[in-house]
Design a protein around this nucleic acid. Structure first.
Length: 569
RNA sequence: UGGGGAGUAGCCAAGUGGUAAGGCAGCAGGUUUUGAUCCUGCGUACCGAGGGUUCGAAUCCUUCCUCCCCAACCA
């Protein structure tokens, strides 16, 4: 009897996939799936955007569709080409290619024409109320709004006024175009929302061609419809904008501007991560106030920051996959992100040895000038990584943390009289501790067992500790930057009365180790190269490095069960 | 006159009337020339609470509670 084939676990669909599959089944869009990723170019993308990018591009790819990249550039005072460029780079880095690259500003004429149509239909009007008056007339959650005195202007007058707004006859802020919907709606978005404001601002793409700019609620749905987007995915806070999204598209009853089926807005919960902030506004403040060096500071949750930190696109995508897609407000443990990069780098990163805080170890029974060139594997489990030559000599550097004068319980590393293995080299026993005048340990004297060259003793004796090391004479000086979480609070926004979210910034989020030493094979490492420093973690060569003077960022440490054990006492 | 959402283990998340998947974290053990990796095992989750319908409810009905979003000429 042949063995039953393993039953493939059908991966359950998330709610958006269910919607798409239902649409596919009903033939709503003729089998088409077209999503869009629509950032406003007013800042750098962060890990939260990565979730959205993976969702939009991933969904389209899964169902044989495509995704447009659309810049939602309707507010010229906040936007800049610098951001457009970084967004394109980040999406590409994540591994996605877009079908169309569009700009809401490409649709300014269409939006204007459709707005004129709505004016003519009596569905939009020019309002002369001031900003403060509009707010006052809008009422609040408990009080219905009241009609603007300009609400019943005749369509012809509105059209004339709207055209003159466009022509620049009125000063900024003096008039707006409003949709005429329902001033008594429980949904504030429907209380005659603004469609256009007058703004004499230079736009990064249209220059000074326009003096009036459309608002998000008006422009977004129309842009989706122009591109014949099938599923318009956005975050939860837009849930009560959906009726407005639909309203703007539904007013075109004759199909002069749009054809059915119209795009459908679907909302999902945005990503939140512990120990960081995730709004463009606050990330911008971190940069502006100098809490971090730049948008791509490796401590930042930006895509460019993660990239510089050493994260792989695959790990970010795997992370996005693991967090899921749902409608609950959630906060993901940053540990899950760390897991994702460790998991990826475990099999991808070649190994090497580096010593962060060196302590000299002299092998007394080895001759001066004696050098053993060891052939070490670049990966413990994957021969495809090949091998490299590593010099081993009388004076080596080991990690300061790997020596204790008084060994605690379960201490496997070096201590006076103890024997450990130098990884890939040999067994050494500590015979003497050398101190300076201040009593500081400056050197360890050891003896080695020449028979153990390679790492094992022929007599079969075991040591529990294996240390990484570099040859003092051959090692290359390097700068190593260690990063810790940017904030000390799991939720930096959860501040006590009178506090500020910046109060919990971690003063020790960056530690620069100027005196580190790496093995010679790393001397001319190219920026962006990822490597595991054995027993320390995964590191990535920073662009600040130069040939012979590399700089490494610690992407993430290895799991450290000794530290955990010791912490428990 | 309020409207819109959401509640399943520490964190996520399946489940769509038939008796609670999976991942991360954590714990225990095994392997190991990285205290890494890898492998094995470990959770009575009273499914926000109370009522109800049903032979049977996380799933249906109902009342209540809690949390999130909305009153920018931002997106």
């Amino acid at each position: 009897m042949p063995a039953e084939p393993p039953i493939p676990e059908p991966k359950s669909l998330h709610f958006i996939e269910e919607i798409v599959e239902a649409d596919l089944a009903s033939g709503k869009h003729g089998g088409r799936v077209l999503t869009r990723f629509p950032p406003e170019p007013n800042g750098y993308l962060h890990i939260g955007h990565a979730k959205s990018i993976c969702l939009n591009f991933g969904l389209a790819a899964k169902y044989g569709g495509a995704t447009n990249l659309r810049f939602d550039d309707t507010n010229p005072v906040k936007e800049d080409v610098e951001y457009v460029d970084s967004i394109r780079e980040d999406v590409r880095w994540l591994g996605f290619g877009w079908k169309g690259e569009h700009y809401a500003s490409d649709y300014f004429q269409f939006l204007y024409d459709y707005a004129e149509y709505l004016v003519q239909q009596g569905k939009a009007y020019v309002c002369d109320l001031s900003e403060a008056e509009i707010r006052e007339y809008r009422g609040n959650f408990h009080v219905p709004g009241k009609a603007s005195p300009y609400r019943d202007r005749a369509p012809e007058e509105n059209l004339d006024l709207f055209r003159r707004m466009k022509a620049g006859e009125f000063p900024d802020g003096s008039k707006v175009l409003r949709a005429k919907i329902d001033m008594a709606s429980g949904n504030m978005n429907l209380r005659d929302p603004l469609m256009y404001r007058i703004r004499r601002a230079h736009h990064h793409r249209t220059g000074d061609a326009w003096l009036i700019y459309p608002m998000y609620d008006y422009a977004h749905g129309v842009s989706d419809a122009i591109e014949t987007i099938t599923h318009s995915i956005c975050t939860l806070e837009f849930e009560d904008h959906r009726p407005l999204y639909d309203w703007f598209l539904e007013q075109d009853v004759e199909g002069r501007f749009f054809q059915r089926p119209l795009p459908r807005q679907i909302e999902f919960a945005r990503l939140n991560l512990t120990y960081t902030v995730m709004s463009k506004r606050r990330l911008l403040l971190l940069v502006q106030e100098g809490h971090v060096k730049a948008w791509d500071d490796p401590r930042m949750p930006t895509i460019s920051g993660l990239r510089r930190r050493g994260y792989t696109p695959e790990s970010v995508r795997a992370f996005a996959e693991r967090v899921g897609v749902a409608k609950r407000d959630t906060v993901i443990d940053v540990g899950l992100l760390e897991f994702a990069i460790r998991e990826d780098l475990e099999r991808k990163a070649p190994r090497a040895m580096a010593v962060l805080r060196p302590l000299r170890l002299v092998i007394e029974n080895m001759a001066e000038g004696e050098v053993h060139w060891l052939t070490l594997p670049n990966h413990p489990d994957d021969p495809a990584f090949g091998t490299r030559q590593v010099p081993f000599a009388r004076e080596v550097l080991i990690e300061r943390d790997d020596f204790r004068e008084e060994a605690p319980k379960k201490w496997f590393r070096l201590a006076p009289g103890a024997e450990v293995r130098l990884k890939g080299a040999c067994l050494v026993r500590c015979t003497e501790v050398v101190r300076d005048a201040a009593g500081e340990v400056v050197e360890l004297r050891c003896t080695w067992d020449p028979a153990s060259l390679g790492g094992d003793a022929p007599d079969g004796r075991k040591v529990k500790g294996t240390l990484h090391w570099v040859s003092a004479a051959h090692a290359v000086p390097a700068e190593v930057r260690l990063y810790d979480r940017l904030f000390t609070a799991e939720d930096p926004m959860d501040v006590p009365e009178g506090g500020d979210w910046r109060d919990t910034l971690n003063p020790d989020s960056l530690e620069v180790l100027a005196g580190a030493r790496v093995e010679p094979s790393l001397a001319e490492v190219a920026p962006g190269t990822r490597v595991q420093f054995e027993r320390l973690g995964y590191f990535c060569a920073d662009p600040d490095g130069r040939p012979g003077a590399p700089v490494f960022n610690r992407t993430v440490g290895l799991k450290d069960s000794w530290a955990k054990l010791e912490a428990k006492g």
